[in-house]
Nucleic acid binder design. Structure first.
Lengths: 342, 342
DNA sequence: GTGCTATTGGGGAACGGTTCCCAATCGTGA
DNA sequence: TCACGATTGGGAACCGTTCCCCAATAGCAC
């Protein structure tokens, strides 16, 4: 490896010398710790500005905090995650904490494990894990090491905080809406990740779909394609569903991304939306509202969820240990992709 | 702050004791450094496995490497970035390096600076900066600290590597395509970030649009909306363009995201695509191919660009200091969103 | 003046790795 | 047998911070 002639960093020692004080004093000023006079504070701050000092994060990590929040996302392709991250960023912006994101790979347990280890090893002060697919035990183990907020799982734990929307209400809204429009052959696209632990949101959405169908005497029309919540998954799932006989008149995709794929499959089959087939999604990511897509979807306010997750993490870092569960009530946003059946 | 009763970490000292060797030896094994026998290597590896040791990243960062690659993205909402990251992840997967992503905020210089500082402070071994909007001097300064690969800028530098597509060819392809279809009133949506430094890709695309229009004697029909490459930007830009008199018959949006927004605006104006207005984008992110969107776009193989960026970074970390410039030749993908004018 | 507490500042030991440098051993050719 | 270079292993300094202490001083009630 070449040794780059990187100009030596300005360290806390340089600042201390320049301000004619001890490194301890500088450290105290930096951390707003107790035991420094106003005069000292001013003198040190001046030296910091003058030298352009920035704390060395790795050195901090050796002893204390890193002022870093780790975010685990299944992947960054899902536009709904962008809404969540916007909320998180907003909440953290004034706090001095920096969010770093890592892709967990979602459906591959080994990749997911590697990603979560990477954050723990990097000594982040808190972790925000979006839609973890691993076992609960692994979450609890991690929570023992690092403050943890989980988004989108329904199992309760005393060790970490949960942010979620009420997927049962959300799925109910969609299915009831389609039934009210007159549909009977309503199909569903779900995500098959890891045998559908009942705590995963995709399980709840699927189970609720089945329940509501049954409650309306439509049990015989239950029709599920278990692929994934991605665009490819939605596409494959919809192709599979449309090939069944009789063909469904409505498709409830478990996510907006899957709904995009489903829309593509419907168009490709030379069918129209909503003329021949109605399509509904879930998440109401910002794109779904665009006029040429106009997808009926369930809104769950990703921005608020991200913002809340940020707040909960800061609280936990600040010392709270009691677990908090924050639930958002979803609403249905009706757009042009759903209509009465042909 | 509560002190969590985290079980003390397994350190390199524990491993050394367990294997009855020095910490130096363990360190050498970990880094595949010179000066350890095969027997030593085996003994140490056994101890590592037995104790479940994982290197403490922060401690490494103090003297050695962090095995971390920092990625700066304007924001994660752009689906094209997901293609890039997929390529990068693939390239890094076998290398032992972990990518961490930070949002730079794109259009806000202060936020961008803060994000890039955050990565430097966290002592990443290399930085992959997608579409930086800052001054070149800032890039060169950073390159002095940390190996750097920049994506999507056309200014040359001897200090960092560049990965880009030939935006001149790409823009040419689109405009020529629209002209060949018979369009004359072709409008363009660009990104106004920071006074259009000529090195930014949006400047090249816009300038090329003007050049090709002029070359075909269509200078009088040049019509540009300078908003942003986001969906909102495309929406606002298209509304602005459609309100002009005479109305354009084709819109060349500088990015797919902007094209999505433009599509929405066209639909909202009760015009059809491509009947009344043709729309073309740039990037050919995976979604644009979906049948119900079917956007004509310029393909620039984001996966390959991400993969290459990863390789270049690893090379630079390995010691290369000569600057490399990797350019992708884009191709036009014609879909249903473009057709002859009414 | 004395004893006490509150406030302010600093000394120095960690933290967990890496790396410089030196010592011991071994093999080999003269 | 000896000199010498190559190989292997380890001791100890060092990276930049934080934090546990202790010291000095000031203020105050008696």
């Amino acid at each position: 490896m070449v040794t780059r002639d990187r100009q030596r960093r300005v360290t806390i020692t340089d600042v201390a010398q320049h301000a004619q004080v001890s490194t301890t004093a500088v450290s105290k000023v930096l951390r707003n710790a107790y035991g420094v006079s106003e005069a000292m504070r001013a003198k040190v701050r001046a030296a910091i500005d003058e030298l352009g000092y920035r704390p060395h994060n790795a050195a901090r990590a050796m002893r204390g905090r890193t002022f870093t929040i780790g975010v685990l996302l299944p992947h960054i392709r899902n536009p709904f995650f962008a809404d969540i991250i916007d909320g998180l960023t907003e909440e953290l912006s004034a706090s001095g904490y920096q969010a770093i994101m890592v892709q967990s790979g979602g459906r591959d347990p080994v990749a997911e494990r590697r990603a979560s280890d990477a954050l723990v090893d990097r000594q982040v002060d808190g972790i925000f894990w979006v839609a973890p697919a691993c076992a609960r035990a692994q979450l609890e183990q991690m929570a023992g090491d690092t403050p943890l907020v989980v988004l989108g799982r329904h199992d309760r734990s005393a060790l970490y905080d949960c942010v979620l929307d009420d997927d049962e209400i959300g799925a109910e809204l969609v299915v009831e809406h389609l039934i009210a429009l007159g549909h009977r052959r309503i199909a569903h696209i779900t995500d098959s990740t890891r045998g559908r632990s009942t705590a995963l949101l995709q399980s709840i959405r699927a189970t609720t779909y089945e329940r509501v169908m049954t409650e309306h005497g439509l049990a015989e029309h239950i029709s599920i394609a278990a692929t994934s919540y991605s665009e490819e998954g939605g596409y494959e799932g919809a192709r599979e569903l449309l090939a069944r006989d009789p063909r469904p008149t409505a498709i409830f995709a478990g996510s907006d991304q899957a709904a995009f794929g489903a829309l593509a499959a419907v168009h490709e089959a030379n069918l129209t939306v909503p003329g021949d087939v109605s399509v509904a999604g879930y998440d109401n990511a910002r794109v779904t509202g665009l006029a040429h897509i106009a997808l009926t979807s369930v809104d769950q306010d990703g921005g608020l969820m991200g913002k809340t997750a940020g707040r909960l993490l800061l609280e936990r870092i600040g010392g709270r240990s009691a677990a908090v569960r924050f639930s958002v009530t979803p609403t249905l946003v009706t757009r042009r992709s759903t209509a009465p059946p042909p």
